[in-house]
């Protein structure tokens, strides 16, 4: 019994190690290359620590025309996505957590199904619609599509957050003079805030990382991912490394900062 458990633990450890290596080595190589001078990039074998540290590559990256504008676009789109995902996702999550309504399970499945729907199929209809209503090549348009991508996550996470807050706390609030809205703002929201913040940051990262919709739906107002995706082919290697590193960075930082809440949300941490 215990021997079996120990073997399972070993297996999981090995698996975790393999996965970590697979994910971390490319990130490390990108990071090292981004901080290396131009000629060190094509050197072989690759070093996992920078041998001669230099900011030239990154400096070059930021001097390329359009990078800054694309970065600002990316941040704006991600902020919009974050706001929309919260404003639509939190109420939906609350409804799922607190009310029994007909078709609730179907609704839950449908939320996840939106993620199963390939964006590529939607691309053409979306582009024609967006042109028709004037959303094509606007940041708002991209943010709306990103919101659609981030919403399932935002809804399900906030619903589990709200479920973790005892109903009696709200009921106590109601008996003490709160309307439903008062109780939500004064009691539920403060308790859910750390988790909601984590979910918002996650929406930010989803938007920041998204390439396909951003590339299809914009022409001049590219987000950073779309901009890099379009210019990758004709750019030199060190530019790609610098761009790659700059793209990875926010996600890494965000995930690191909110990792505690992500664990809590996914039920890994004990309740």
């Amino acid at each position: 019994m215990t021997a079996g458990k120990a073997t399972t633990a070993k297996l999981f450890q090995t698996l975790a190690l393999v996965i970590s290596v697979c994910w971390l080595v490319p990130v490390a190589i990108i990071a090292v290359s981004a901080f290396s001078p131009r000629d060190a990039i094509s050197a072989w074998p690759k070093a996992l620590v920078p041998t001669d540290f230099s900011l030239d590559t990154l400096a070059f990256f930021f001097r390329v025309g359009g990078v800054w504008k694309a970065t600002v676009n990316s941040v704006l789109v991600a902020l919009l996505t974050m706001a929309f995902a919260l404003l639509l996702g939190a109420p939906a999550g609350y409804a799922l957590a607190r009310f029994d309504f007909r078709g609730q399970n179907l609704y839950r499945v449908m939320i996840i199904m939106t993620r199963a729907f390939p964006l590529a199929i939607l691309a053409l209809p979306l582009v024609t619609r967006f042109i028709a209503v004037g959303l094509y090549d606007t940041l708002l348009g991209v943010a709306l599509v990103h919101t659609a991508l981030a919403l399932p996550f935002s809804i399900l996470v906030s619903s589990s957050l709200f479920m973790g807050i005892p109903r009696e706390l709200e009921e106590a609030g109601w008996t003490m003079g709160c309307s439903r809205l008062d109780a939500f703002i004064r009691i539920v929201l403060p308790l859910a805030l750390p988790g909601l913040a984590a979910a918002m940051i996650f929406s930010f990262v989803i938007s920041w990382n998204e390439v396909f919709a951003a590339s299809v739906l914009t022409l001049n107002n590219r987000t950073l991912t779309a901009f890099l995706f379009a210019s990758l082919e004709e750019s030199p290697l060190h530019f790609r490394f610098a761009g790659g590193f700059f793209l990875v960075l926010p996600s890494l930082i965000f995930i690191f900062v909110v990792r505690k809440y992500l664990f809590a949300m996914w039920g890994i941490a004990s309740r």
Partner: peptide, 28 residues
């Protein structure tokens, strides 16, 4: 609504607001 009935209720699991101090709970 409950707030319009001038009642007070004590719950089985106490339902003390965890993000407020005892004083704030009583004053709520």
């Amino acid at each position: 609504a409950p707030r319009e009935r001038n009642i007070a209720m004590v719950f089985q699991n106490y339902a003390v607001f965890p993000h407020m101090t005892v004083g704030e709970n009583i004053a709520f």
